[in-house]
């Protein structure tokens, strides 16, 4: 019997910005790469995201942020994940992130930061490397 372990990814959209086209495109690409993607929809609070990550036992959380509020949202999510004992969960951020914020996000432990126009295959590969490298 094949008992390959599936990579589980939570794709979440924190904050109040309006559309989730980008998040959906990424979700589909990850599905097509054989991953199980839990998609939670718009306007998620950091608490909702951390709770979902916990209940769904995901390997990866992908945050899609277009609103510019990443410097408040990302630290909050990372903090909650840590409080829940989920420091093993890899966090990726996609959206519009100015270059000057990248080092700070990296410092928080964000594993990958992807702007518009990133090749989907790069994201797939980064997630695979992160998760499989850990096992």
């Amino acid at each position: 019997m094949v008992r390959e372990r599936k990579i589980r990814v939570l794709i979440a959209k924190p904050g109040l910005d309006g559309h989730d086209r980008g998040a959906k495109v990424v979700a589909r690409a990850l599905r097509d790469a054989g991953m199980e993607v839990i998609y939670t929809g718009l306007r998620q609070t950091p608490e909702m995201i951390a709770q979902a990550a916990l209940q769904e036992d995901v390997d990866v959380v992908g945050l899609s942020i277009l609103s510019g509020a990443h410097m408040t949202l990302v630290p909050r999510v990372m903090d909650l994940l840590k409080q829940m004992g989920l420091e093993h969960v890899a966090v990726f951020v996609g959206g519009i992130i100015p270059d000057e914020d990248v080092p700070a996000l990296r410092c928080l432990g964000v594993k990958g930061i992807y702007g518009p126009g990133t090749a989907l295959s790069d994201i797939v590969q980064a997630i695979r490397q992160e998760v499989e490298g850990r096992e």
Binding site: D32, G34, E36, I38, Y39, G41
Partner: peptide, 17 residues
């Protein structure tokens, strides 16, 4: 692909916390 998009939580937003 063997992958899946699991979207039922979208409708359960109020229950998340």
């Amino acid at each position: 692909s063997g992958g899946a998009i699991l979207g039922d939580r979208i409708r359960m937003r109020d229950l998340a916390t």
